[in-house]
């Protein structure tokens, strides 16, 4: 079994900010049903570009759920500029670390956030839905390459 930190388990078992967010004015979506993980992030941003509320819907493993929950907690109260600097490492750190095979689950949080911010600012991100397939498998591929390197 994965060596999940207590914080990960806590955020998986009692996730914060679950569900659609009434009055959300920024939505970021990443992943798909096909690739096995997906995240829909809802933000309520005020006129000063401050995130006053956030929520999520996630389909994925325990660390995907925990990462989503952590992300919403991290960014609540931030300005969009500050939120834009949040990385998947910040999410993992907030959770007391993720197993290295599961780091990509936090990448999904970062990706959805980027899209939500773009959505608010009316910027088109030239990515097809389902892009996460590639990101997901990218990480996996890297891990495989890594493992191969380690072995030989």
């Amino acid at each position: 079994m994965w060596n999940y930190s207590e914080k990960v388990m806590e955020h998986f078992l009692k996730p914060k900010n679950v569900g659609e967010l009434e009055g959300a004015n920024a939505i970021g979506e990443t992943g798909s049903l096909n690739c096995g993980d997906a995240l829909k992030l809802y933000l309520k941003v005020n006129e000063n570009e401050r995130i006053i509320d956030a929520s999520f819907m996630t389909f994925g493993c325990a660390s995907a759920v925990a990462s989503s929950s952590a992300l919403t907690e991290i960014i609540k109260g931030m300005t969009l500029d500050d939120a834009a600097k949040v990385t998947n490492d910040d999410i993992a750190d907030y959770l007391g670390g993720l197993p290295k095979e599961k780091m990509h689950c936090s990448v999904m949080g970062q990706a959805a956030l980027k899209k939500a911010i773009a959505d608010f600012r009316g910027i088109q991100i030239l990515e097809k839905p389902g892009e996460m397939i590639c990101e997901c498998f990218d990480v996996t591929d890297l891990e495989i390459i890594d493992a191969v390197k380690n072995n030989g």
């Binding site: 998986f12 049903l33 389909f59 994925g60 493993c61 325990a62």
Partner: peptide, 10 residues
């Protein structure tokens, strides 16, 4: 519409 690992964890 749910993911296996999450089910296993619960």
């Amino acid at each position: 519409a749910v993911e296996g690992e999450s089910i296993l964890m619960l």
